[in-house]
Design a protein around this nucleic acid. Structure first.
Length: 805
RNA sequence: GCGUGAGUGGCGGAAUUGGUAGACGCGCUUGGCUUAGGACCAAGUGGGGUUAACCCGUGGAGGUUCGAGUCCUCUCUCACGCACCA
């Protein structure tokens, strides 16, 4: 009977040893070695690690350890995204300071992270709440302010009544609820600190091309940014005013039979327009109703189109010269394009629907070009929204619609332009536990950045941070006093804090130079480590963190502060771990798996390998936790623990070859994040050698293969061999291709494409020899019959297919 | 509606990229064993079938091919993202 696999004892023992020797700390960058920057999303210190953190951190650790053993310099930093609402809410509940709550959580979670046994680069850690960290968050904000990238904007903002703060567009879900708390978001008119992410819209789309990201993430970002290429065209109103519309189809301009303004359009508030409008009351009523409606109601697509005509006012179609009616309707959005459209009912679904309801003339100006097959049946079916040939459009008749776009815009003096769905990023928060916006106002109310020598602009402590809707920092006497002392009497501080997505937009730059007092991250460090080679994370960040941080990096790049303009070369999104019942884990469902309990029961190596074994990492599938499944992994490790009992004097050639095939398999699987198949190959190998026996050197090789997957057990077994150093600084085994190639294989024999038997061959067996073997098998011979086969297909090592009549 | 991805045993998933479908693990069945455990060992486990032959089988229907889970066409279902964006 072999030694017991006491995971608890050996895991604690080796975690202490690794920490004491600092083997995972970062070495000076050596340019002779390939570098690899592996990033996982830094956790929010909520108090306890959950199983999702294990999935997020311990599975990538396999990748990290493997690449280190290959001889690459790999950094794998970990830190804390520690500002944010939960701390504030917890602190309110317990009547303590969010700082205390956060710090004690970090302390506890660091311990839990150590219990994973991951090869984290702990010397590169940081936390967003560390003043030495947020000093730089603030400094960058002041730089952006001076460049006009950060600005004080006005307008409609998303107000979350649950969080008592403004939130950004990206943080509002498609059902109009808050990403954080689920409350329905309201629209509010309020001045807001904004970041000009829209200036980067084109680059954020175009640079996706060069990124090795899953297509669905890139596509989601493209659609979120929502670039439409088209033109702005001016329409003159009978009042003499000018309305600029945006259209992607200027080729249909001759078919524009009316103009629509959004209810919020500023022209509707001008004296000229109001004076000439004969049904002003009706119009005002409509505007009032529309602005009262929630966004959700307005966008409900089952709703019928509504609108009202501006009686007494017409617009002149700049192409045809016709006078056409002007409507206001809420199917036109004030926030998109110019807030006004030219309506072409013949070639647009929505305009068609509206025109039908209000009996507006429809004028077809595009004739579809048909292939012979789909015939004339839909020739006159309108609206037709595709491209085609221009008609009823004066000199443009007969022209292809693509060509006509440019020409028509030119004729009417319009401008080719793009418009975007993306809005500027609203970053001011009326909450306490965040980075104070480093802005002060002079007695005239003008904003000034806090100069570098006063950074970090410390978050005051004398604050009652219970949410009232007013920014808590407004209540800080200390902050007021500080501002007046430094800047003069009458100066006042900004009292909002920054969105925590700002903190996480640059943490990867700080990791690599986390002790620098003079710069956010020096160029040498960046040249050594950036860009991030692989970023593992969750699906929820696609149009938030992943978009914001790309923007932030580009803005820094333009200021000459960073060396690359895209932070993440490759991105892998993992799936979700569900409860044993197949539902999302939640306290109310009582299906939460506590990782600490699992580690206590079966050990960290087992939990890690189980998570890696569930399926390919990077498929966004959700996996239910399976108690039996994790027991299977534990069983496997028990057998590995006793594997030395199967060491024999000399192993068979087959075992040697199997080992080399296993080595090759792991070399190909890990770089593709297919940890599941790498593990199953190790299991198959153990199944074989438990029967056949393996040599001492193969045993040692196997332990090295195991090391990235089960670091504690591998280290423990290695230590019994008295080799001196840690197994984790060993070189990863390499394979001999000549041993990998199968010397003998069983191939299928098909007759007329149907499987009829097998023969065992070598790669060099000739067709003649194979046929001889087939004929020597009675059943096969009978099946083929006496006639000569019509045709024989033989792919050496793969298949034999005999075609007979 | 638009976009992206995916459909393989009771379950998680494999499949040398066009060549014996179901590796590995879970679960289950039978037998053994006893440190009675979320244990271990052995054999079996896609469905049908007279248990032999054979037939059927990768959401469905066609097609290409000596050969299709894999390629093509149509179609259905599910997940995620966007959604009156002009």
């Amino acid at each position: 009977m072999h030694k017991k696999f006491d995971s608890k004892t050996i895991e604690r023992k080796w975690q202490e040893a690794w920490s004491a020797s600092g083997i995972y700390n970062t070495k000076e960058r050596d340019n002779n070695q390939e570098k690899e920057y592996v990033l996982v999303e830094w956790p929010y210190p909520s108090g306890n690690l959950h199983i999702g953190h294990w999935h997020a951190f311990s599975v990538p650790d396999i990748y990290v350890r493997f690449n280190r053993m290959l001889g690459k310099q790999v950094i794998f930093p970990m830190g804390f995204d520690a500002f944010g609402l939960p701390a504030e809410n917890a602190a309110i509940k317990r009547n303590i300071n969010p700082r205390e709550w956060t710090e004690s959580n970090i302390e506890h979670m660091k311990g839990q992270l150590v219990s994973m046994g991951n090869a984290f680069s702990w010397d590169l850690t940081t936390s967003s709440t560390d003043p030495e960290y947020y000093k730089w968050t603030q400094w960058m904000f002041t730089q952006f302010f001076e460049q006009g990238i950060a600005y004080r904007g006005k307008g409609l903002v998303n107000w979350c009544p649950g969080c008592n703060t403004v939130i950004a567009n990206e943080q509002v879900l498609s059902d109009d609820t808050c990403e954080r708390c689920g409350n329905e978001v309201e629209k509010k008119e309020m001045p807001q600190w904004m970041l000009r992410i829209t200036d980067y819209a084109d680059r954020l789309i175009d640079d996706l091309k060069g990124l090795d990201w899953p297509e669905h993430i890139k596509e989601a970002q493209r659609r979120w940014i929502g670039r439409s290429q088209g033109a702005e065209i001016d329409f003159e109103l009978s009042t003499g005013d000018k309305v600029t519309v945006f259209t992607t189809r200027p080729d249909t301009l001759y078919g524009a039979t009316y103009v629509v303004l959004a209810p919020e359009h500023p022209l509707l508030q001008t004296d000229e327009v109001r004076g000439k409008t004969s049904n002003l009351r009706e119009v005002d009523e409509y505007i009032e109703n529309a602005t009262k409606k929630t966004e959700r109601d307005r966008l409900d697509d089952t709703r019928e189109k509504t609108g009202v005509k501006l009686e007494g006012i017409t617009a002149k179609n700049p192409a045809s010269g016709e006078n056409i009616p002007v409507y206001i309707a809420d199917y036109v959005l004030a926030s998109y394009g110019t807030g006004a459209i030219m309506a072409v009912p013949a070639h647009d679904e929505r305009d068609s629907e509206f025109a039908k309801k209000f009996s507006i003339p429809v004028k077809q100006v595009i004739k579809p070009t048909f292939s012979s097959t789909d015939a004339a049946k839909s020739l006159d079916k309108l609206p037709y929204c595709g491209d085609g040939v221009i008609a009823h459009s004066g000199e443009f008749d007969g022209m292809d619609s693509q060509e006509a776009k440019r020409k028509i815009v030119e004729k009417v003096g319009g401008r080719m332009t793009s418009t975007y769905r993306l809005r500027d990023w609203s970053v001011g928060r009326q909450r306490y536990w965040g980075v104070p916006i480093p802005i002060v106002y002079d007695p005239d109310g003008k904003a000034h950045p806090v100069p570098k020598e006063h950074l970090p602009w410390i978050l005051p402590e004398d604050v009652d941070f219970k949410p009232t809707g007013e920014a808590p920092l407004a209540k800080s006497e200390e902050l007021k006093k500080r501002t007046e002392e430094i800047f003069g009497v009458g100066w006042t501080p900004e009292v909002e804090t920054l969105d925590t997505f700002v903190d996480s937009s640059w943490y990867f730059l700080r990791y690599i130079d986390n002790k620098n007092n003079d710069e956010l991250s020096c160029k040498e460090a960046q040249e050594s480590w950036m860009p991030i080679d692989i970023y593992f994370g969750g699906a929820e960040h696609t149009t938030m963190h992943l978009l914001y941080s790309r923007f932030w990096q580009k803005a820094l790049y333009d200021l000459g502060l960073v060396t690359v303009d895209e932070p993440y070369k490759k991105r892998i999104n993992r799936g979700l771990i569900l409860g044993p019942d197949g539902n999302k884990m939640s306290k109310s469902k009582g299906n939460v798996i506590d990782p600490d309990e699992q580690v206590e029961r079966v050990g960290a190596d087992t939990v890690k390998m189980y998570l890696a074994f569930m399926g390919p990492y990077g498929e966004m599938t959700n996996y239910p936790w399976d108690m039996g499944g994790i027991a299977g992994i534990r069983r496997f490790l028990e057998r590995v623990n006793g594997l030395y009992e199967h060491v024999v004097e000399s192993e068979t050639q087959e075992v040697t070859e199997e080992l080399h095939r296993l080595i090759k398999k792991i070399h190909t699987d890990i770089p593709e994040y297919k940890f599941n198949t790498a593990i199953s190959s190790m299991m198959s190998f153990v199944n074989i050698v438990e029967k056949e026996g393996l040599s001492q050197s193969s045993y040692e090789t196997f332990l090295k293969l195991l090391a990235p997957f089960a670091p504690h057990l591998a280290e423990e077994l290695w230590s019994t061999l008295n080799k001196g150093d840690s197994i984790h600084v060993e070189k990863f085994p390499t394979y001999d291709e000549s041993l990998v190639v199968l010397k003998k294989m069983t191939i299928g024999v098909q007759i007329n494409g149907k499987h009829r038997g097998e023969v065992t061959v070598t790669p060099s067996t000739t067709e003649e020899e194979v046929m001889k073997m087939v004929y020597s098998v009675e059943v096969l011979r009978d099946k083929i019959g006496s006639k000569k086969p019509k045709k024989v297909i033989y792919k050496p090592g793969k298949i034999l297919n005999i075609i007979v009549d």
